[in-house]
Amino acid sequence: AVYRIHLTHRQDDNNPARSAAVQPATLIMKVIDSSPGNRAVFKPLHEREVLFYNEIAPVLDLASVPKCYYAHFDEEAGKGTILLEDAGKPTHKGGLQKDGFETLTASQAVLAMTELGRFHGRSIALSSKLPRDLSRPLDRSIEEIRAAFPSFKKTWTPLLGEEVIGRYERALEAYEKVWLVQKDTFVQGLVHGDYRLGNIIFSAEDGQRDNVPDRDGDDLDNAHAFESGVKTSVARGYQEATTSNGDSQPGTVAKSPKGLVTPGIPTTSNDTTINGNASPNNHPNTPTKLFTFKHVDWQTVSRGPVLFDVAYLLSMSITTETRRGCEFDLVHAWYTACREAAGAGNDQFFLSADLNISPCVREISAACVAVVLVSVTTMNNFRAPEVPMRAVAGKLRTVSEMLVDWRSFE
């Protein structure tokens, strides 16, 4: 269960410096389920999240990660508690709506990818200062996925049809041949592990919903105002150099796979080159209405192929139409931010000097296979009377379309 606690502060005449402005006004309290049946599952997730907040987040120093004020696991009661900085009231509702799943706008997705690239880049640059033992906590074995597939197929074939189920079957084959064989050779860093809308909180700083639309991709004016607000807000938290990383190699843009098109969305963040060389005036000082942007729920953070997170967001949080319209921009936003963050302030550039977008596209394509199979193990016996099956089926179809567009089987 997750609670927001509104705080009031006692007047402290002896210490006027501790004004209300520098004290939190709200806290988030996460309480981990302590029922015996769930304890074995939740305890490692709780420990993983606490490790992230206590030991990893301070090293990464990202403004987009909420502060953790307190964490404790009571072994006897089997109960874990985490107190976090409030990530704000989301400008999106998140989760399942009446007619489908809520998705990110194109502009929100660009921001999310940029911040994700920053997280990955910093984790690569600061790798030696982070805990070594961070293997994926809940890695699904091929046996588990194979075992789950028959009931997944039985549940969803009537709603998805043979063609879509066929994509899942091919993904099952490709999991061993493509993903498991290659994943350890892909760009390695910290992986959020569950990087989708719901774990990315966009919110107005004053806590209002501010009429930011919940529709995907169709109110770009509002989204751009929103984007510029987030940029200002995020920029306040970053003091990194935005100068060149010294890489003079010409960037090579991958030949776009089928479905990847140069986008039509205008963004104000295109002032960096493909080499990650930023233009001098990257962070606008013009104050705009501020928005906050937080990544939450670090229960599945691990070391691994970072482009898994990119594939996860592209598959799970954007409509097919929005994704097809801007996915090259999204990958480019991730790539640029990752290179900048990996290079900033470090003598050694940890990303391979010859890494360009082309291998990134290949790694995302392979990661799609792993991402869609998350659906199989989590939705194999899905039955929930309160949730429209048709909406979930629409989501599963959207997820499967990544496999085709990104030619994940080749």
Binding site: Y3, G94, G95, N199, I201
Partner: peptide, 21 residues
């Protein structure tokens, strides 16, 4: 545990139940 229960238990009214998932 509901927010109402927590508020009553603590004698406050500043806790709301939210979902970050």
């Amino acid at each position: 545990i509901t927010a109402e229960w927590l508020n009553a238990k603590l004698g406050i009214n500043t806790i709301e139940h939210i979902s970050l998932q």
